[in-house]
């Protein structure tokens, strides 16, 4: 049973990676908003890259999620 408990704790710790992704996404969209407010005409031109970055940043956090899933169920 100790192994089960350790797995649970390990999975929880691995899920912390999503916190980093949250910080990254906050940075990304915060800076995007700042750019959009400063230069509203450029907003339509700036729309694609944040989405790409969103996918890339989110994936980083999800790597941690995968680790958690592997620990729990793998």
């Amino acid at each position: 049973m100790e192994l089960e408990a350790a797995k649970m704790i390990g999975a929880g710790i691995a899920a912390l990676a999503l916190g980093g992704a949250g910080v990254g996404l906050g940075n990304l969209f915060g800076n995007y908003m700042q750019g959009a407010f400063r230069n509203p005409e450029a907003q339509s031109k700036l729309k694609v890259n944040p989405m790409l970055a969103f996918a890339l940043i989110e994936a980083t956090g999800l790597f941690g999620f995968v680790i958690a899933m592997i620990i729990l169920f793998g």
């Binding site: 996918a55 890339l56 994936a59 999800l62 790597f63 999620f65 899933m69």
Partner: peptide, 16 residues
């Protein structure tokens, strides 16, 4: 690995 895990993890996470 990063290319495949990115897609895989996004799909799994969303469905879970």
């Amino acid at each position: 690995i990063s290319l495949s895990v990115r897609l895989f993890a996004n799909m799994v996470a969303g469905h879970v």
